[in-house]
């Protein structure tokens, strides 16, 4: 009887600890996530000019898309498409990895929609994002609260 009780207490305390950890923060420091971040960071060096020119915009589902290929010189358009699809593949993996790293694969959609609004919120003025049915140009300074 005592053994049973102590076993029960142990299981409960494990769950409580698990819950406390989950409530405090989301785990985002796995090697897989770090690799995705690094890859996206490097790619951003190329993508930022496309964001600035309006060739590429942020979609409302937390991905990016070619908005206006004519903003890019003809010779660069092939590279543009592969850049966008590589970025989207990384992003899809990122959302999935965060969900699984926290033991909740079913959170993937929620994480993705969280990212959708945060990407847009942090976008620079002049970049395009999807809103409703169309593209909107992000306005200047005071739109997003604290940086």
């Amino acid at each position: 009887m005592k053994k049973l009780l102590s076993g029960f207490v142990m299981i409960v305390s494990m769950f409580v600890a698990n819950w406390v950890a989950a409530a405090a923060d989301l785990e985002v420091n796995t090697p897989a996530i770090a690799a995705l971040k690094a890859s996206m960071q490097v790619r951003h060096g190329q993508l930022s000019t496309f964001y600035n020119s309006g060739a590429v915009g942020l979609t409302k589902d937390a991905f990016i898309a070619v908005k206006d290929a004519t903003a890019v010189p003809l010779k660069d358009r092939g590279g543009l498409n592969s850049l966008v699809s590589a970025e989207n593949a990384d992003r899809a993996n990122l959302y999935k990895e965060i969900a699984t790293a926290n033991g909740h694969p079913e959170w993937q959609a929620d994480i993705q929609s969280t990212f959708a609004s945060r990407w847009i919120d942090k976008a620079q003025a002049g970049w395009f994002y999807q809103s409703g049915g169309g593209w909107v140009k992000k306005w200047g300074l005071p739109q997003n609260g604290g940086q």
Partner: peptide
């Protein structure tokens, strides 16, 4: 927590 994590990742990537 998800917003916080997203912000951190976005700040790093961008």
């Amino acid at each position: 927590a998800a917003e916080k994590a997203a912000d951190k990742i976005i700040e790093e990537v961008w």
